[in-house]
């Protein structure tokens, strides 16, 4: 996984609450057995006017001009500004894969659904929780200011606006450590293989029916 220390980029605002993972990447694209290539179908049913299916040439499909990511001023955005309960619904990791594949590196919202939040960290996409009033303010600024960019500093746990205003965010120390160093979580866990084996032996002795 790529290290995430400090990133800076154009912000796109997605002004709706409860954006679910079916909306982020519709199910027909879940048939893939790969981790990549989901970007062109991110928010597929909002982004295009026709119905998308795997295997279509997305470059030839009619874009929905009203959808925010299709507006030229947000082209190349790497920070997604969102509303509460972003990523609710299914556990599909295709959702963060699609956001990353599209080019997003961080998502800012007042709240995220649990599984999505977890899945982001495993893939180097940083979900940032900021208070609702701060997110509101950022929405107003993004919409009022073409070319609006934010700097996201994971080491320092801060988001900085073009005016130099800084907002701090919380992040779990273990997750931060993994992201900042680009660590493989499985490798880290396997350092404790002996502990796992000892636990398993004890469990087998106490509840043998679990190991039949």
């Amino acid at each position: 996984m790529e290290k995430f220390v400090r990133r800076e980029g154009l912000v796109a605002p997605l002004d709706r609450a409860n954006v679910d993972t079916d909306a982020i990447i519709p199910k027909q694209f879940l048939k893939s057995i790969k981790r990549t290539g989901f970007g062109p179908n991110l928010f597929d049913q909002w982004r295009y006017l026709d119905h998308g299916e795997p295997g279509m040439d997305n470059a030839k499909r009619p874009l929905n001009p009203d959808f925010v990511l299709n507006r030229p001023r947000y082209r190349g955005a790497t920070v997604l500004l969102a509303r509460d309960n972003f990523g609710c619904g299914s556990s599909r990791e295709h959702a963060p894969w699609a956001l990353l594949d599209y080019g997003f590196q961080a998502v800012i919202a007042p709240g995220f659904a649990d599984i999505f939040f977890n899945n982001c960290f495993k893939n180097g996409l940083l979900p940032i929780v900021l208070p609702a009033d701060v997110v509101d303010k950022l929405f107003r600024e993004v919409e009022a200011t073409p070319g609006y960019r934010l700097a996201v500093d994971l080491e320092n746990q801060s988001v900085t606006t073009p005016d130099g205003e800084e907002f701090r965010f919380n992040v779990d120390p273990f997750r931060k450590h993994c992201l900042v160093n680009g660590l493989d979580e499985i490798g880290l866990t396997l350092q404790h293989a002996d502990r796992i084996r000892a636990f398993e032996d004890k469990r087998r002795a106490e509840q043998p029916w679990l190991f039949e």
């Binding site: 556990s91 990791e93 977890n118 899945n119 893939n123 273990f174 499985i186 796992i196």
Partner: peptide, 16 residues
């Protein structure tokens, strides 16, 4: 769980 966690459980029988 997500797919990375599926892999984590396959490999370690544990989750973080």
């Amino acid at each position: 769980i997500g797919t990375s966690e599926v892999e984590h459980v396959l490999a370690t029988q544990c989750l973080v």
